[in-house]
Write a protein that binds this DNA or RNA. Sequence first.
DNA 1: CTGAAAGCGCTTACAG
DNA 2: CTGAAAGCGCTTACAG
Lengths: 333, 333
Amino acid sequence: MAPKIKDVAQKAGVSVTTVSRVLNGEKYVKDDLKARVKKAIDELGYTPSHIARSLVRKKTNLIGVIVPDVTSSFYATILSNIEKTASLNDYNLIVCNIIEDIDKEYKYLQVFKEMRVEGVIVMHEKLNDEIREFIDKMDIPLIFSSVKPNDQKFGSVIIDDRAAAYEATGYLIGLGHRRIAFIGGDMRDVTSGQGRYAGYMQAMHDNGIAIEQGHVRFGDYKTQSGYELMADMCGGGELPTAVFAASDDMAVGAMNCLHDKGLKVPEDVSVIGFDGSQLTELVRPRLTSMEQPIREMGQVTIEKLLDLIAGQTSREDAVLRHRLVVRDSCKAR
Amino acid sequence: MAPKIKDVAQKAGVSVTTVSRVLNGEKYVKDDLKARVKKAIDELGYTPSHIARSLVRKKTNLIGVIVPDVTSSFYATILSNIEKTASLNDYNLIVCNIIEDIDKEYKYLQVFKEMRVEGVIVMHEKLNDEIREFIDKMDIPLIFSSVKPNDQKFGSVIIDDRAAAYEATGYLIGLGHRRIAFIGGDMRDVTSGQGRYAGYMQAMHDNGIAIEQGHVRFGDYKTQSGYELMADMCGGGELPTAVFAASDDMAVGAMNCLHDKGLKVPEDVSVIGFDGSQLTELVRPRLTSMEQPIREMGQVTIEKLLDLIAGQTSREDAVLRHRLVVRDSCKAR
DNA sequence: CTGAAAGCGCTTACAG
DNA sequence: CTGAAAGCGCTTACAG
């Protein structure tokens, strides 16, 4: 068994109180005692138990994170920066990865509560009622990152999806496109889903462009979904000259579909993505995309959560800046 | 503050012992008492403190994981399956993401020790001496996943890199290639780095093929590295007709470089990758790759670690099966 | 400056 | 079947 504070005290010939004091860097310990204690700690290879400390301090330095899918470069990047910022602030992460297994989310929220995490970060918004209720009475600071559910009880760290989609569509219009298709994500998502679609519609409307039959389709943000929706679109009716996809993953799916059908991007069809994930630089042609400040998002999420933990009560959303990054997948016509 | 067991006991009019008993599903509690306790728990929204439990049970159900970079699809997939299997076994994960910050690894190992995690999983092998020494005396079951350091003190979950590389190279030879280049990872890696290189060399040797000047280069497994090494190779000397990259990321980098130089894959140059990550299906042409059983790896890692935690002492490596998956990036000549 | 004692929220012999 | 008491490994008033 690992040595405990009592072992250190005995070895150093002092009380556990004194050991505790040098452990916690208190003044008022004579230098020679301090030296003896430090020596004993070293020799024993003693490390204080975080468990015991948490119990008495009523502070766990733990944050629970719920990620839809760590395998997605978008979430992984946010998570990576959440971890980084948390670590800088001496917080550790318990990570829950819910790959379409909503039950796991409920289970993990239970775990979070049992572990007395000080705060919770949620990166998806398909909350069912059971979960919503559980969160309500959990009474632990909670923040949504990169998503914003209907529920106004919690803050979010997001971008202005509608404005970003408006600009992305406007960019294509500016290039001379008129037949612009939209490949969307889940419309149950209030911000990402509905916001991006609304921005697209608004831009088309403001420029007096009618949307053609079959040029708006919805899937689930993933590559395969983008591929399938694009394939459907190729199935009948007139092909669009440009496609705005609600995620980079979908955009890549669409590009691959076009490629497999012998169509060239951007010569035959321009494609613009959304997110600014690492994928944009990996594919050929490199993907023009409406970039979210993914790194910053992780950092701001922790900062806001720590504010909440510290007792701040404001529930304002943090709305970060988006940015169009032009690469090689769009062309003027 | 969250309600505690005492609150439940008072509300139900029983002793804390009895509450504890129904919490832990013990028999020998009369039905009516049990009912009263359950009611009180419900009404209070009581959840037992994992902290307090851990302290007395001397069991934390925590596993520490050190990942080089969650942003990489390869590690993310392993991690995802580690999490899944751990969760099924009622274990939770503390995740450390060391993006080239070795200091963080040391810091996290400390945290792991403080938190009294029951086991540690390490997914990289660049251990410096300080860390090696710390691990040695940490006295917590530890296992390496997807890597195998020199150190024979710990078990690993890996594949036979040498055999896999031998087969991958053999596949290219079988297609009629002779000028086959190798783009390797870090040669300090005993298995992945050295093993894959050795397998390549051996296959070339066994088939009586001389390796050409400049056709073997080493980088760091990442896309950019693959791009740069390929660019170097294009700089002078005769171009290879096929390239074996030690990771899919590098292979994609190489493909992108060739693309940017106006060369066609596989018509001008064949490319084969290693790992079988999600990237293989995302790029065009789809990447032929020597696949590691990435999902299985996560699962086996937890299973072996749990064995270790349960007191099993064997340090045998688990060597999983690799598998060549042919896609569109290689062509007979 | 130092230490004995109480207490954090639980579980587990022990006694009844 | 049930409960009072000790103990898990620490920290923190309190007293000296």
